[in-house]
C-alpha cells in the first residue's frame, strides 16, 4: 500500500513487514489453490489442445498458478537480501485482523437476514454496530447516522430508482 512510503514510526499498529515465513506462505497459498483446482480439473474431460475439453483450460491456469507460487517460494527462500526482492514484500497480521473477521461475519449475517426480514432492520443494525463498535463513534452519532442513512438508502433505492430490494415498509 502507498502508506509504506509514510515515515516509519514504530507505533503499535504501523504496518510491519512480514517475515520470511509469511513470504513463503504467500507462495504456498497459490500452490495449494492451484493444486486443488488442478485436481478438480482432472475430474473433467481434458481433451487436447486442438480439441479442448472442459477441464483443459482450468488445468492450464491452475498449473500457471502453481508455477507462480513456486517462483514466489523460491525467491523467498533464496534471496540474498531478503528485503530487496519485491516478491518478498508482505505485511504482518496484527490484532486488527480480529476486527476484519468480525466485520466480515457481520456482513454475512446481514446478507442472510436481508431476504427474510427486508432490508430496513438489518441495514439499521449493521450500520449501528459498525459505527459504534468498529468505528468507535459515540452512541448518539452512531444512532443518528444509522437511522438517517437507512432512510436515505430507502428513499434513493426504493422510491427513487425503483430497485426491488426486499422491504417491509411500503407506501
Amino acid at each position: 500500500m502507498s502508506d509504506a512510503e509514510a515515515p516509519q514510526e514504530e507505533g503499535a499498529d504501523e504496518p510491519r513487514a512480514g517475515g520470511r515465513a509469511q513470504a513463503v506462505v504467500a507462495g504456498a497459498l497459490p500452490i495449494a489453490l492451484g493444486a486443488f483446482a488442478a485436481w478438480l480439473a482432472f475430474g473433467l474431460k481434458l481433451g487436447s489442445l486442438t480439441d479442448p475439453g472442459p477441464g483443459l483450460w482450468p488445468l492450464v491456469v491452475a498449473a500457471l498458478l502453481v508455477a507462480c507460487g513456486v517462483a514466489i517460494v523460491v525467491v523467498a527462500l533464496s534471496a540474498k537480501v531478503f528485503e530487496a526482492a519485491p516478491a518478498n514484500r508482505t505485511e504482518s497480521f496484527t490484532r486488527g485482523t480480529g476486527a476484519v473477521l468480525a466485520a466480515a461475519a457481520a456482513l454475512a449475517v446481514y446478507a442472510s437476514l436481508f431476504e427474510v426480514v427486508g432490508f430496513e432492520l438489518p441495514t439499521l443494525l449493521l450500520l449501528f454496530a459498525w459505527l459504534r463498535f468498529l468505528g468507535r463513534e459515540s452512541w448518539l452519532t452512531s444512532a443518528a447516522v444509522a437511522v438517517s442513512a437507512t432512510a436515505v438508502a430507502y428513499a434513493l433505492f426504493i422510491l427513487g430508482l425503483g430497485v426491488p430490494l426486499p422491504h417491509i415498509i411500503a407506501f
Binding site: 431476504e115 427474510v116 426486499p166
Partner: peptide
C-alpha cells in the same frame, strides 16, 4: 438450503404479517 429457506419468507409475506 439455508439460503433458500431464508428466501422462502418473501418480503411481502413479512409485510402481510405486519398488516
Amino acid at each position: 438450503r439455508g439460503l433458500l429457506a431464508a428466501a422462502a419468507v418473501s418480503p411481502f409475506a413479512a409485510l402481510a404479517a405486519c398488516q
